[in-house]
């Protein structure tokens, strides 16, 4: 029982990472109808920036804050320079451009920092936390708290601020929003900035666990895809719930089902993606859309 509780909590910890990455994907999907395949590599790259800042002697939390600012500005610039010219092109074009970004960031990280695995300092204490007689790793509990807090801030931003409202309007009704004076194209750039911030946070949260190397986000981004699809690619709430479900599910399967083990977890994620898209394409929380042709 105690082991099960520990496994569930550590599943929730990885799940909240998947949830954050999935939310980052959904933020862009809602406004542009594309998946940013470079999301994971952007998160990895910003995590390396945080590592570099810590190496330069910056305190951990200061480095975190600086990195978040860099991620936001960098992603907005990226959208303006690289994505804007293809904003109106078909999905295939944007997918290929984001793949270009994926491989560029992966290469740049290798170029600047090399492929040797680096350890990333954890902001959380090493001592376990005792809740109800069961010892949980502070790392896990910390990851869950930070991720949920950042998700909460994002949803408050969308629900309560005028800018958040404008972004939602631009995503849903671009033409009408334009008429009302919303700069639709800039809202897309802001969306990129925000999702890069969410990605950067999850990168910095997961780096102490998986260690830092240019390929660290590759598996995580597939779990995030699965989480987003499971929850419904249109739905931010779905992304979060999907991420948490997936984290616990994969952890339990990996621990208790010998057939799955560690090697087939990615295959399970692939199977979930295919199964959800075939059986219930809208996911758990998405709306079924009807297109007029």
């Amino acid at each position: 029982m105690q082991e099960l509780a520990q496994q569930v909590v550590s599943g929730l910890a990885s799940g909240s990472i998947y949830a954050s990455m999935a939310l980052a994907l959904v933020l862009i999907y809602r406004s542009m109808n594309v998946i940013n395949f470079a999301q994971g590599e952007m998160a990895m790259f910003t995590t390396f920036i945080a590592w570099q800042l810590v190496q330069q002697g910056l305190p951990l939390w200061a480095a975190f804050t600086a990195t978040i600012a860099v991620a936001f500005v960098g992603a907005v610039l990226l959208e303006r320079i690289v994505i804007r010219p293809v904003e109106r092109a078909g999905p295939l074009t944007i997918v290929i451009v984001t793949l270009g970004l994926l491989i560029t960031f992966n290469g740049l990280a290798g170029l600047f920092w090399g492929y040797v695995i680096k350890s990333f300092p954890s902001p959380f204490p090493a001592a376990p936390i005792n809740i109800g007689g069961v010892a949980f790793s502070s790392q896990d509990v910390g990851i869950i708290l930070v991720s949920l807090a950042s998700l909460g801030v994002i949803s408050l931003f969308f629900a309560k601020t005028k800018l958040g409202l404008a972004m939602r309007a631009a995503a849903l009704y671009p033409a009408a929003s334009q008429v009302l004076g919303i700069r639709v194209s800039w809202m897309l750039a802001l969306g990129w900035g925000l999702s890069a911030v969410v990605g950067a946070i999850s990168g910095m949260m997961v780096a102490p666990v998986v260690f830092l190397d240019p390929n660290m986000m590759q598996g995580i981004v597939v779990y995030a895809f699965a989480a987003a699809v499971l929850g419904g690619v249109e739905s931010p709430l779905g992304a979060v719930v999907g991420g948490l479900i997936l984290g616990v599910l994969l952890n339990l399967l990996g621990t208790y089902v010998e057939f799955v083990g560690t090697d087939l977890r990615l295959a399970v994620a692939f199977a979930i993606i295919v199964a959800v898209l075939l059986i219930r394409p809208a996911g758990l929380f998405g709306r079924v859309s009807v297109a007029r042709v």
């Binding site: 451009v97 270009g100 970004l101 994926l102 491989i103 560029t104 290469g107 290798g110 170029l111 492929y115």
Partner: peptide
Amino acid sequence: NNAAPSVVYGVALI
């Protein structure tokens, strides 16, 4: 550099 092909690929693709 070992990592250079990825960068060139990515930039060329874009």
